[in-house]
Every structure is written in structure tokens, then in C-alpha cells.
Design a binder for these strands. Structure first.
Lengths: 343, 343
DNA sequence: TTGTATGCGTTATCAA
DNA sequence: TTGATAACGCATACAA
């Protein structure tokens, strides 16, 4: 007879539980995953044995045997950008009471990096995949299509989902912000943009559409940089813009960080906001409503996007894809003092 | 003869590679993990076979067989707090080119939640554990001590590490900020604190120590709340503090969000900064140097803490624990306009 | 509703 | 340096 020497740390296994409960191992397995398929009697015996032994299922063994890991793969372009931090929080909060774990990775706004990470994730056979944006590389898109699990593209909506989508239209957001500035009386409205990732580009497109429709567009009003966004950069971009166009009477900022930089620079240079220059941001961070003057911004529903993405994926995992494969959570213009020129 | 019906998705396995390369499976395994133990010859053959088949090792099978997952478990109290977001970014960046993955979880500043998540993580037999702070519950601490893997406590330093530590002294940070305010001429210095987690408490302790040493302490100067920190809250706490002590001539804020709220409120109420009220923050977010007036703050090295934590854990995994089990990365006082009363 | 036999892809053990 | 064999802990397929 062979002596069983445990290689593992000696943690109780499903077999130990089965022995103690006087049932077959598979019954324990079932009792844990599909309790309704096991008789009330055995279920209780098994639960007692589980408690007594302190049994905890082994994720790895489970994943190996079922060829499916209880993992949500999540790809975001940045971990520190508050916008994505909130999306990620929504995802974690939604999943914290489920058996699913989160596998998070940072693409650093690189399509190639995204591709590489996707391949890595796929090798784990995740239960679902959540990716940011709709501009995957061709190979990445193919990987997603063949992923064999629900896929949710977040932050944006677009015409051709890999599987599901939840987000909003950045172009419309940019347009709404710009139209608001025009309506409030601005004529020489600058666009300030950092990073200029695809979503930033579309906000710019919205700005341009609104400006052209009003006959106000002038390419010299646009100031962008590939450099990552920051409050400091907002100040610098604004200085550049003002040097180019001294008659500037409004700015639409790609995001709130930039807007804050503009606001501070206006204070420093004693430029009246909104009288001389009106400011509109994007995303509506908490601080915009406290700023002085408070700053108009486009409110986006980041946390909710995270929640919805998980909800949609869950439905799909359950077999019933949601009614609408593309959900547009929209945005809201929050009018504040920084664009209120009525006085 | 039995027909092998693959249950998995038909991905190539190590056996396929072995067959193609004309070697044993275990040799392939070794060639991948410890190349130096396989002859140059076979190594190349195997590499060719791997490339040809597009073989990717299965994490789950590997973890199951070796009873060790290539996973770093990371526990932080918040995902959106910029401070932790940067720590997490440091961790991810350090690990992105390693075989290790990151398993991140959010404790929501709850010791019990941390305990629960720890148990969850431990069931995966992680390669290392990174936890925030030094105030684990007794049971959590025991779990960490028995984890059987390197453990790094981050953000703070303290006398009794579970295993390793990297951070700085929040008490000294609070003291340095307060002493600076005193030296710059303030006498009625308020403390504004949100959340009041253990690290906030220690900053308060530092404030109190400095104030008492100068004979300036007055409990009514302290305004705190368990509510999570935000810019809005900074404004509200400041209003409360000012209502209590109209003679306030300086505030030390628990963190930069609060400080920003104070700054905006000063603008709104036309209170001169720093002449009437001086402001000092904590953490030194990017925006503090751009604010108008620029805001004095305690610079902390969040990203570096993440990097160091991984570096220490890596050393320990390699078998050679680092020289110093406790690394104090310190902090720096950044003097700016908001506390410069010389004019 | 419950159990038996077997496979999942990899690594540890031990022998050659 | 290389390989055969037996775990690792659990779930699938199928039978009872």
C-alpha cells in the first residue's frame, strides 16, 4: 500500500469533507456549487463537515478541472486617472460578493500593450472580459471575438460592438460642452486637449462640429499635446493658447484636470472668470462644484459604467444576453459659475 | 485504444510540445522554468516547438501542481484615493514584466473586510502579500504570520513588522507640517481631518505633539469627521472650524483634497491666503504646486512605495530577505505660497 | 439524487 | 542531463 504524502500544504480537500460527511466527493462539489441539486439532508451534513474542517475550495484545481476560471479580466489604460479608478471601483464593488475575482491590468494607453495583456488573460480562460474603448487593434479585436466568453467594451458607445458595450458618446459630450459655451456668449472658444487618446479625439470632433455649425471654427483655437493630462499641463496649454489667441473668451478642456489648471492660471493672471474667459471641463470631478468660481463640466457616470459592465457580463454568463447589447449611459451638462456670464 | 477527447479548448499542452520536440514533458517544463538545467541542444528544439505550436503555459495547472500561484495579493483600503492609486500603479509597473500577476482587492478601510479578503487570497497560495497599514486585526495578523509567503506592510513604518515594511511616519509628517506653520508665524492652527483612519490619527498625533510643544494646543482647534475625504468636505470642515474659532490663522489638512476645499472657500469668502489664513496639505498632489496661491504640502512617495514593496517581496521570494526589513522612505515638506507670510 | 471512473495540464519525486 | 510515474484538487460524463 502506498503512503499518501500530501504535496500541498495539508489543507483539507474535498475528499476529506466527503469522508467526514460520509458522502461522495462529487456530492460535496455539487453541494457547494449547485445546492439545489443536493438533498436538504446531505447538504447540512456537508456544511457541517466543511465548517469543521475549515474547508476552502481550491481555485486553481477548480479552474483546471472546469477549464474556466472564475475571473473577470479587466483592461484599463490608466490606474491613476480618476475616471478609470472609479470605473474599476464600480467593477470591484459589483463583484465583491460573487465568486468571481478581478484580474486587472494597465494598458498605459497602448494598443499593443492591450494586445499582449489580452493574450495573457485569455490563457486563464476568464469568465468575462472588460476592455476600455472601442479602438482595439485588429488582432486584439480578433482575440476578443474568439475569446469564448462575454466581452464588454466600456467608456464609449459605437456602432460595432465585439459583444456588448456600455458608455456614452464622447463626441456628443464635446458638442454639448461647446454649444453651451457658445450659447453663454463666447465666440473665441479654445479647445485644450492632453493625451489625445481616441476618446479625446472624439471630444475634439464634437467641439469642432459645434464650432463649425456656428461658423466659429478656427484651427488656431485648438491646442493639444500627446503628453498625459495634469493640472500643471492645463496651465501650460492655456498659456500657449492665450499666446496664440489673446482674444480667447472661452475654453473647453478635454478633462477637469486641465480645467483646474486653467482656473488657477486665471486667478494668477487676474483674468476674470467667467467674464473675460469662460471655462468648461469634462467628467465633473467632485472638486468642480467646490471650485471658485465653480466650474461647468460634463458629468459622466463612471462608477455606473463599471456596475453596468459587470451586470451585463453576468447576464451573458447566465446564458441570457441582455436585451440591449449597447447601453448608452449618457452624460449631463452641469452649468456652473465658470460659464455664467449673465451678470 | 481510447480516444482522447480534449475537454479544454484544444490549446496545445506541454505534452504536445514534448512530442513535437521529441523529448519528455518534464524536460519541456524545465526548459521553460530553469533553462540552465537543460542542454543547449534540447532547449533550442523545445523553443522551436513552443513557437510553432504557440504554446502558452496554463497558470492554473501550474499553480495546482506546484501548490504556489504566481500571484501577488494586494490589499488597499481604497481604489479611488489618488494616494493608493499611485501605490497600486507602482506595484503593477514593477510586476508587468515578471511572470507574477496581481490580485488586487479593496478593503474599504475595514479591518473585518481585510480579514475576509486575506482568507480568500490565502486560498490561492500567493507568492507574496502586500497589505496597507500596520493596524491589522489580531486574526488578520495571525493569518499574515502563517501565510507562508513574504508579506509587506506598506504606507507606514512601525516597530513590529509581520515580515517587511515600507512607508514613512505619518506622525512625523504631521509634526513637520505643524511645526512649519508655527515657524511661519501662525498661532491658532486648526487641524482638519476626514475619514480618520489610523494614519490620519497619527498625523493628528503629530499635529498635537507639535502644538503642545509650542504651548499652542487647544482641543477646539481640531475638527474631524469619519466621513470619507473630499474637496467638498474640506470646505465644510473649514466652515465649521472657522465658526468655532474665528481667530484661526492657519490650518493643517489631513490631505490635499481637504486643503483644496479650504483654499476655494477662502477665495469665495475673500479670506487672504496666506496673510489671514495659512494652509498646509498632505501628500502633495500635482495640483498643489499649480494652485493659486500654490499650496504647501507634505510630499509622500507613493509610487516608490509600490515599487519598493515589490522589490522587497521579490528578494524574499528569491530566498534572500533584504538587509533592512523596515524601509522608511520619508517625506518632504514642500514650502509654497500658502504658508509664506513674509510679505 | 448520488456515485464511479477518469481527465484537466503541470510539476515533484525518484530513478536512470 | 533526462525521463517515467504519480500526484495536485476538482469537475465532467455517464451510470446507478
Amino acid at each position: 500500500m502506498k503512503l499518501r504524502t500530501r504535496r500541498g500544504g495539508g489543507r483539507p480537500t474535498i475528499a476529506d469533507v466527503a469522508r467526514l460527511a460520509g458522502v461522495g466527493a462529487i456530492t460535496v462539489s455539487r453541494a457547494l456549487r449547485e445546492p439545489e441539486r443536493v438533498s436538504e439532508n446531505l447538504r447540512q451534513q456537508i456544511q457541517r463537515a466543511v465548517d469543521e474542517l475549515g474547508y476552502v475550495p481550491d481555485h486553481n484545481a477548480r479552474a483546471l478541472a472546469s477549464a474556466r476560471a472564475e475571473v473577470f479580466g479587466v483592461l484599463v489604460p490608466s490606474l491613476t486617472n480618476n475616471v478609470f479608478a472609479e470605473v474599476v471601483r464600480g467593477i470591484y464593488d459589483s463583484l465583491s460578493d460573487s465568486p468571481f475575482r478581478v484580474q486587472l491590468a494597465n494598458t498605459h494607453y497602448s494598443g499593443l500593450e492591450e494586445e499582449r495583456l489580452l493574450q495573457l488573460f485569455l490563457s486563464q480562460r476568464p469568465a468575462a472580459l472588460i476592455v476600455s474603448g472601442i479602438d482595439q487593434t485588429a488582432s486584439a479585436r480578433k482575440l476578443l471575438e474568439d475569446a469564448g466568453c462575454p466581452v464588454v467594451q466600456i467608456m464609449e458607445t459605437g456602432p460595432d460592438p465585439v459583444d456588448m458595450m456600455v458608455g456614452f458618446s464622447h463626441l456628443e459630450g464635446g458638442r454639448a460642452a461647446t454649444e453651451h459655451l457658445i450659447e453663454s456668449g463666447c465666440r473665441r472658444i479654445g479647445f485644450l486637449g492632453a493625451r489625445m487618446d481616441p476618446r479625446s479625439q472624439r471630444r475634439l470632433a464634437g467641439y469642432r462640429a459645434a464650432m463649425e455649425a456656428a461658423g466659429l471654427f478656427d484651427p488656431r483655437l485648438v491646442t493639444t499635446t500627446p503628453v498625459p493630462s495634469s493640472v500643471t499641463l492645463g496651465r501650460d496649454l492655456f498659456r500657449d493658447a492665450l499666446a496664440k489667441i489673446p482674444s480667447l473668451d472661452g475654453v473647453f478642456c478635454n478633462n477637469d484636470d486641465l480645467a483646474l489648471g486653467v482656473l488657477f492660471e486665471c486667478h494668477r493672471a487676474a483674468i476674470a472668470v467667467p467674464q473675460t474667459i469662460s471655462i468648461c471641463g469634462f467628467n465633473d470631478l467632485d472638486m468642480m462644484q467646490v471650485a471658485f468660481p465653480s466650474v461647468t463640466s460634463i458629468r459622466t457616470h463612471r462608477y455606473e459604467i463599471g456596475r453596468q459592465a459587470v451586470a451585463m457580463a453576468m447576464e451573458a454568463i447566465g446564458g441570457s444576453w441582455p436585451q440591449d447589447r449597447v447601453i448608452d449611459l449618457g452624460f449631463e451638462l452641469r452649468r456652473r459659475e465658470s460659464t455664467d456670464r449673465r451678470h
